[in-house]
Each structure stands twice: as structure tokens, then as C-alpha cells.
Design a protein around this nucleic acid. Structure first.
Lengths: 327, 327
DNA sequence: TTGTAAGCGTTATCAT
DNA sequence: ATGATAACGCTTACAA
């Protein structure tokens, strides 16, 4: 009895199909991959046998032989973030349409985790990696001979980076606040030590401010940054936050302090993810072309996988100002 | 020259390490897996060689032999949704801590995609699947001998389901509205044809209403449902939405119609995902224990992978009422 | 303590 | 048009 069960549970393989169809496993493989000449009669027999046994090819064995897994590794801080969640959704989607699967890695912004994931993905023989995590200084990115694409992060000189046009986004945001009459505009951004293209949002803000003979003032988004801003700048009348979550926090704090938006304070965010737009549509924001970023990233990765050379290392995709009621 | 390059790019394998260390590949494998007896000297030699060559074991080859991939398949509608994004984050996290990797599949609520993914995961020899997608009627779930766990979906009689305590959640939500003085409470829910435990939210709502001698009234969340509700029910003073996104839409529509919340209308949602809480903290909601759901799902899956039997088929984890300013 | 050889489930080469 | 056989990189009996 146990013997029978054991056999029932055993996965069916090429040999089993071959036996059932009365041919060799080479023939079955040929039918499976549509290669070489096969007589119609044989093909039918084999297909029948496959149906009958509910045969599923073992991709692991195939991968080992052809030395390719059709798996792409994704390393991002967290699927829980609206922007990354949406980006990952599109990356997976497009991958799937091209026959690739994705292995998901949440690095949580931790360099050690990112390093471990990178090694894991290599051991798993992924065909390439798309990373939107953490900072450079992970030398493994250079050592690995793997096709790589970075999203909004500089990983190393030779790795292509796909971003929204951060400079233009920062410019659009700042100019909007100015146009609406703001005189004391403050910018909130991540740590300037992370060498990300997102720093260009800050750069643009500072350039625009100076061009208008105003003093730029950037706060790093750390504990209590928002309260500090209001405490230290009673006259602030415009805030450009480097992402929508922070912008939303700003709106909340303003409400708490009875500062009315947009009359006394105007706020602009960045990202414009689907979910944020739905939950906080009143927030003015600079929307990243998430789907286009995903498409380009995959395209650049697959090109590399196919051995093509990438002509350019930095790609900035156009952003869109979404004006709500906070400006 | 090309010959040299070709060799440089070739991945190093067990044989290379063995040659470098002057031992057999069996010995290297033993060092790698800490199996059997190895002299200290040999172990050192091998480790040196591995470092020198930057050797990374090929998990595909290993998987083929041991007939186990340490990969878990995740099938969910979309990472873009705050609740699923957070759930997937935890699922990945916990998997990682147990040595498993995750293959991500966004089914987009499409039965055909789900079916394809299921087959793909089988071909890729995943060790198990956690699915929170679509409906039953996918017979493949029964055919596959794969360990499976469902989250908030009935897949088939024999597949364990992990959910939040939907009945208690629906009860808590409705009772809150009643306690706050609502007389005309409406419920918005997904299609009743999807046989999900989330239907229990509706059931609880209806039970509580009837117990209080009120007529339950449930709208299916489809095009313009919210507008219809307001149009058809000018006296509505309480809405229990089956998720926070819908609840947020309700808040928006109420604002548009100058219906003040919570004075004239009270609103409760469901899910209480991190991001929703941050973006719309004023919304009262029933919070699901996302992390605990993920932990239990993984635990049940790994038990099955290890050949253990699952004692129970339905697991309802306790929810928490998060009262905001909308009630 | 270490090595030899077989085998995991495929695909590709070379016969026939 | 089809089949026998080697190979992909690893692990594990079994032998020495």
C-alpha cells in the first residue's frame, strides 16, 4: 500500500511519458520543444500521454542544462510602500509577459540584507537583477557578472539607472509654490549621503530658489523633522516634500496646529502613486511614470541578458505635475 | 584573447574549487555542507580555494538533486494594494528568515492568470504556495500535490485558510456605528459570489442589524455604487465599507455632497494597513493582524512541506477596532 | 579521512 | 523521423 502511494505521489517525468507513448525520451523532448522532425502520429501519441499523466516539465532540470532560469531578482526596500508596491506590480507584470518570473527581496533599506540577497540571487542563477534599494558601496554589484539595472539609485559607474526626471520634478514643484505666492519655502528630503538621483530634487529646489533670490532651506527627513520645521519656521508658507507620505504627514501636522491649507501653507509631494492619489487626491504632487520606468528597466535588463550593449547609463523619464487642492 | 575572456566569465564550480585545493569534488561538497569527517587542514585548504575563486554554489543543480528548491510561490491580486503589499512584505520576510525565497505572482483577480501561475509554479518545483487570489473553481488546486495555504479565500475543502476574524470584525464595525447612534446603516461589500471568508463581514453586519430590529442593506461595490447609495438613501447616517479604500472613497463623496463626517455620517472601514493608517488616520477601521496572518500562513505551509498534518482547516485571527474621527 | 561513480530530469549531439 | 548517450553542477552511496 505504501509502495503504491509512493508511486502515486512521484512526479511524472519525461521517461514516464516516453514509456506511456512507446517512444524514447528524446522524442518526447522534441515534441515538447517543437524541435526537429516528428511525424504527426508520434506527436499525437506523445501529447495524449502527456495529458493522461498530467505531465509538467521540470524547469529546474531544464534550467540546469540550458544554463538559464528565466528568473529576475527584484531588490527593493518594501512592497508595503505605495510607490514600490506599484513599481513591483508593473515589473512583475511585464516580466511575466516576456516569460520571466520574479524572485522578490525586501531589503528594508538594510545594507547587510541587500548584500545577502544579492548573493542568494546569484546562487539561484537568476538571469538578472533590478534593484531600487539602498546605496552604493556594495562592491558585490561590481564583482557579479550579472546583468543589472538600478532604479533611482546609483549602484556603480557601469550600471544603468532608470529614474523619473528628478531635476525637472523638483523644479516643477518649487516653481509651482512660487507661482502660488509662497515666500518661505522649505524642502524635506532624505539623507544627502545616499547618492541617489533623488538628490536632484533637492538640487533643483535650491537652484530655483536661488534664481529667485530666495534662501533655500532643506531639512533631512528624520525624527520629528516636521515638528521642528514648524517650530523653527513660524513663517513657512510652502513645503516641498520629497515623497507623498511625508507630504501627508506635513498636512496632518499643519491641521494639528490649525494652519490652513492652502491658505496659510501650500504643500507639494512627490511620487503620485495610484494608492496615494486615491487616498489623498487633494495633495498636489509630482507624479512619476511608474509603468514607463518599469518597462524601460525590464527592457534594459533583457537587452543585457541577450548580450546587447547599453548605449547610455542614465535615463530620466518625464514627470507630471498633478495639481490638487494643497497648493 | 577571446579564449581568455570566455574563461574569465565562466562561473566557477565545485570542480574548479576541488582542483585549486587539490582534493576531489566530493570533499569540497562535504566542506560546503558540513557533512562527514574532514581533516582541519583539508577544510582550510578548501575554504581558501573557495574564497580565492569567489565560489558560489549553484542552487539549481543542488535543487535538482535534493528535489527541493526552498522557494515558495505567492499568488495575490496585486502588490499595489496596501493590505496585500504589507502582507506580502511580511510573507517574504518570514520566509527569508526560514531559508525560503519567494516567487511573486500578481494575479490581478483574473482566473486565467491564476491558473497559469499555478502551473508555472509547479513547473518551477516550488516547495509550496500561499494564495490570496480569486475564487475556488480552480481545480488545479486540488490536482496539485503541492502544499498550499490560502489567505482569506476558500480554495477547496482540504486547503487550510487563514483569515482575520471576519465575523467579529463585521460585528465590531456595525456595533460601533449603532453605539454612535446611527439608524440607517449601509454596508458595502464585494461580490457575494466570490466565496470568501470576507462574506462573514456581511453576515455579521446583517445579524447585528436584525438583532437590533433594523433592516440590513448591502450594496455590492461596483461602478458608481457609492453615488448610488447616497442618491437612493438620503437618510443614510452610517456606512460600513468592506475595505479602507472604499471607505476613503465614501469620505470623499460625502465631502463632495457637503455631508459632514462624523456629524451627519459615520464611516468604518476594514483592513487598517500601515499605509492607510498613515495617509488617512482619521478613518475608523477594523485592523487585520497582518503580521500574525503571515506568520501563521508560513507556519502552516512549512509544516505541510515537512510532511506534518494540519489539524484544523480554518483559522480566524483576532481583529482590532481602531477608532478614528469618522465615527 | 578521502575518492569514485551514479544519478537528479532535462537537452543536444550524433548515429541510424 | 527516431533513439542512444553524454552532459549540465551538484550530492550521496559505497569503496578504499
Amino acid at each position: 500500500m505504501r509502495e503504491i502511494n509512493k508511486n502515486l505521489f512521484k512526479k511524472v517525468k519525461l521517461d514516464d511519458v516516453a514509456e506511456k507513448a512507446g517512444v524514447s525520451k528524446t522524442t518526447v523532448s522534441r515534441v515538447l520543444n517543437n524541435r526537429g522532425y516528428i511525424s504527426v502520429k508520434t506527436r499525437e501519441k506523445v501529447h495524449e500521454a502527456m495529458e493522461l499523466l498530467n505531465y509538467q516539465p521540470n524547469e529546474i532540470a531544464r534550467s540546469l542544462f540550458i544554463n538559464k532560469t528565466f528568473i529576475i531578482g527584484l531588490i527593493f526596500p518594501s512592497t508595503s510602500n505605495p510607490f514600490y508596491g506599484q513599481l513591483i506590480f508593473h515589473l512583475e507584470n511585464i516580466s511575466e509577459s516576456l516569460g520571466y518570473k520574479v524572485l522578490l527581496c525586501n531589503s528594508q533599506g538594510r545594507e547587510d540584507k541587500e548584500r545577502d540577497y544579492l548573493r542568494m540571487l546569484q546562487r539561484h542563477q537568476v538571469d538578472g537583477i533590478i534593484a531600487g534599494a539602498h546605496n552604493r558601496g556594495i562592491e558585490e554589484y561590481n564583482n557579479s557578472r550579472l546583468p543589472l539595472v538600478a532604479i533611482d539609485r546609483y549602484l556603480s559607474e557601469s550600471i544603468p539607472v532608470v529614474s523619473s526626471d528628478n531635476y525637472d520634478g523638483g523644479k516643477k514643484a518649487t516653481e509651482l509654490l512660487l507661482k502660488k505666492g509662497c515666500k518661505h519655502i522649505i524642502h524635506i528630503n532624505g539623507s544627502p549621503e545616499l547618492e541617489t538621483p533623488a538628490n536632484l530634487r533637492r538640487k533643483a529646489y535650491e537652484d530655483v530658489m536661488e534664481k529667485n533670490l530666495l534662501t533655500p532651506c532643506t531639512y533631512v527627513n528624520e525624527d520629528n523633522a516636521i515638528e521642528t520645521i514648524f517650530d523653527e519656521n513660524p513663517h513657512v508658507d510652502g513645503i516641498f516634500a520629497s515623497d507623498d507620505l511625508i507630504a501627508s504627514d506635513v498636512m496632518r501636522e499643519a491641521k494639528k496646529r490649525n494652519i490652513s491649507i492652502p491658505d496659510e501653507l501650500k504643500v507639494v509631494g512627490y511620487d503620485g502613486a495610484e494608492i496615494t492619489r486615491r487616498l489623498v487626491p487633494e495633495l498636489s504632487t509630482i507624479q512619476q511614470p511608474v509603468k514607463e520606468i518599469a518597462e524601460l528597466a525590464i527592457k534594459l535588463l533583457v537587452s543585457q541578458i541577450n548580450g546587447e550593449n547599453i548605449s547610455k547609463n542614465e535615463w530620466n523619464l518625464p514627470v507630471k505635475l498633478m495639481e490638487g487642492k494643497t497648493t
